[in-house]
């Protein structure tokens, strides 16, 4: 599944957003359901996540890896997680650009989903993925505003 799109954060310049995005404390607050990021290496974290979407819930264990950092314009983020209800593996490029005092974040990535969520969640995968992204940026925006 290809996921592309963009989000605008009004109150913060790319330099600040870039810093926030690379801060594990901020990331763990912004990722919906994230119960903590534990540093395991240079730009590598172990993640525990409990995703709750409506009546659906599932726990995931996984990793987050950041690479190709070109502050403050872009970096790559790779996320892997697996749990009883399936697994998710994704990698994408995030590009930041200043715009009217705010930041435009463009993302473009490829997500692979397997297990139960792939075989029975087809109808809602896309809508759910985009909802998680929306929530992520809403919270990032809140963080940036503080």
């Amino acid at each position: 599944m290809r996921i592309t799109g963009s989000a605008r954060i009004a109150a913060a310049a790319p330099e600040q957003i870039f810093r926030l995005l690379l801060d594990p404390a901020v990331l763990s607050k912004c990722l919906p359901g994230c119960e903590g990021l534990e540093r395991t290496g240079e730009d590598e974290y172990r993640m525990r996540m409990k995703a709750v979407i409506g009546a659906v819930s599932g726990a995931f264990d996984g990793t987050v890896r950041l690479s190709d950092q070109k502050a403050p314009q872009s970096f790559r983020m790779a996320v892997e997680g697996s749990g009883r209800i399936g697994f998710v593996k994704g990698e994408g490029l995030l590009k930041l650009a200043g715009q009217d005092g705010g930041t435009e974040i463009a993302y473009d990535g490829e997500v692979q989903v397997g297990g139960m969520i792939a075989s029975v969640g087809q109808r809602l995968l896309d809508a759910t993925a985009r909802m998680i992204i929306r929530r992520f940026f809403t919270r990032l925006s809140e963080e940036a505003g503080q």
Binding site: Q112, G114, G115, A118, S119, V120, Q122
Partner: peptide
């Protein structure tokens, strides 16, 4: 099946 071999029509819902 998607390109990774996941059967995405896994139930009568799809």
């Amino acid at each position: 099946y998607d390109e990774n071999g996941q059967l995405v029509t896994g139930e009568l819902m799809d």
